[in-house]
Computed example of a mutant assay.
Amino acid sequence: MASFRFCSECNNMLYPKEDHHNRILLFACRNCNHEEGGDNPCVYRHVLSNTAMDLTMQHADLYNDPTYPRANKTCPQCGYNQAVFFMSRAKRADVSMKLYFACCSPDCGHRWTDVTGGAK
C-alpha cells in the first residue's frame, strides 16, 4: 500500500517522478532536488467498495425472490404495505449493520433503509 515519503535532506514531501532514460520510478523533493529510487512501481491505488444498496440494484426483481424475508412495512414512495428486507453484508469495521427494504409492488421497486430499528 502506498504511503507518503519524505526527503531525508529537508523533510519535505517526495513526489513521484519518472526517469525516462532508465525507465524507473524515482521520488524527488521539489525543495532541495534530492531524489531516491522507488521500491514499488505503484504510485496511486483507488479502492472501490459497494454498499448493500448498490449490490441489490443489480437484482431488479427482489419482490419475486422467495429467499428474502417479507415484512408488513409501508413503502414511503407508493404506500404498498409489503416489503422484502435484508441486512448489510459489509464486513468493514466502519459500517454499522442496517436493515434495507425493497417494496414488493412490481410497479414501484423502491429501496430504502430502516431508521426506526427493525421490521414490524
Rank of each mutant, 00 (worst) to 15 (best):
C75A: 00
F86E: 00
A119R: 02
C29D: 05
C104I: 05
A102I: 06
D19S: 03
A90F: 02
P76C: 10
R70T: 14
Q77W: 08
A93Q: 06
P76Q: 08
V43R: 06
D94A: 13
Y68L: 14
T116S: 10
T67E: 13
A90K: 09
S105W: 03
R70C: 09
D114C: 02
N72E: 15
C32M: 00
S96C: 07
A102H: 12
T74Y: 06
A102G: 03
G118S: 03
V84E: 03
M87D: 06
H59E: 14
Y80V: 04
A93K: 12
N72V: 15
P16S: 00
R92T: 12
D54Y: 02
N72G: 08
C7N: 01
L55C: 08
M13D: 01
T113I: 12
K73I: 15
R5C: 03
P76F: 01
N33R: 14
H21C: 11
N31Q: 10
L99R: 09
C108E: 01
T56K: 14
Y15V: 02
Q82T: 10
W112Q: 01
I24F: 06
H20V: 10
P69V: 07
A28W: 05
C78R: 05
D107M: 00
H21W: 12
M1Q: 09
P41M: 02
P76V: 09
Y63F: 12
N22C: 09
N22L: 11
T116P: 04
C32S: 03
C104N: 11
E35S: 05
N22R: 14
F4D: 04
D19M: 02
R89M: 13
N12F: 06
A102R: 12
Y44C: 06
Y80R: 08
C32V: 02
R45F: 08
L48Y: 08
R89C: 14
S96Q: 09
S3N: 10
E35Q: 08
T116R: 13
Q58M: 14
L25P: 03
T51F: 04
P16T: 00
P106I: 00
N31G: 07
Q58S: 07
D94F: 05
H110Y: 11
C32Y: 00
F86N: 04
G37Q: 14
V43A: 02
S8C: 04
R30E: 13
R30M: 13
N64V: 11
H20C: 03
R111F: 11
R70A: 12
N40L: 12
M57T: 09
F6D: 00
F85D: 02
F6V: 01
Q77V: 07
N72I: 06
C10K: 04
Y80A: 04
T116F: 11
D114N: 05
N33C: 13
D19I: 05
H46W: 15
S88W: 04
P16Q: 01
S96E: 10
G37C: 04
F27T: 06
A60H: 13
D65E: 11
R23N: 12
C29F: 01
Y63P: 03
H34M: 09
Y100L: 13
W112R: 06
C75L: 00
M53H: 09
E18N: 06
P16V: 00
D61K: 15
Q58I: 14
V84T: 13
